[in-house]
Amino acid sequence: MSADSTLSKKSPPIAGTASSGETAAGSATAQETTAQETTGAPVTQGELIRFDHVTKRFGENTVLDSLDFRVFPGKHVTLIGPSGSGKTTILRLLMTLLKPDEGTITVGGEYLNHEKKNGRLVPASEKHIREVRKNIGMVFQQFNLFPNMKVLRNVTEAPVQVLGLSRDEADERARELLELVGLGDRCDAYPSQLSGGQQQRVAIARALAMRPKVLLLDEVTSALDPELVQGVLDLLRDIAHTTDVTMLCVTHEMGFARDVSDCVMMFDQGKVIEFGHPDKMFSDPENERTKEFLSAVL
């Protein structure tokens, strides 16, 4: 087990903390309530992201099955696994595009979907969610740039509207970021005038402009033409090595995963079946299904 990204389904994930109720199947929410009555806050050990017994279902289909894991600041975690195994669901839960059916998620020591009221956990207000969510940025498979705004505006709009930066300040920072992603000269283009690779670079700059602590990367190269993939991956590699942003990425680019990850988590059927340092995972996986999956994609 890598020291930084602790996760488990088989072994108690947060042993030795106030939350002692890991044994029974009872609701995670109830347990956290007990824990937090004594401590007054979610139990943290300095981790940035924490999933406790998170379950997510779509109808009959359980996509995440009582998942526990933690990610410490500055670490890069790659989620791999066959499609439909729940990888993307984790990112979407963190981004609050989905709500968990059971369990709690904490980001930077704050509950994401819940709030403490009179010692009980209740569903969080929109305001609370927005506040916690400011720590998180996301880059989408389909870029999702705003077609009605020019490139510069795409990057500055949220810092101005949400963070309250002045236009000038936001412009200056956006130009720096666009320079960083190699598009300093395309500030006045509309997204529709850019190639897919360029659009994805803008989307990365847009996410970074919010100075997130966590960057979620959801199959960011899957929608790109093959010749454009490498450029975007190089950029992300650069960002991973030169900044202290925490990354969670879902990707099918195993070379990239090996280069940047501190930890790789293998998902299958809503559970983590294996995790570890990429050197170990890619060269000597233990789980049969991990072996099968890796031999199919490598």
């Binding site: 981004m95 595009l97 969510r133 400011k134 989408f140 999702n144 740039l145 709009e157 949220a158 949400v162």
Partner: peptide
């Protein structure tokens, strides 16, 4: 979704 990810109200 992009709007949510950028914390727009």
């Amino acid at each position: 979704e992009a709007g949510i990810a950028l914390s727009f109200t």
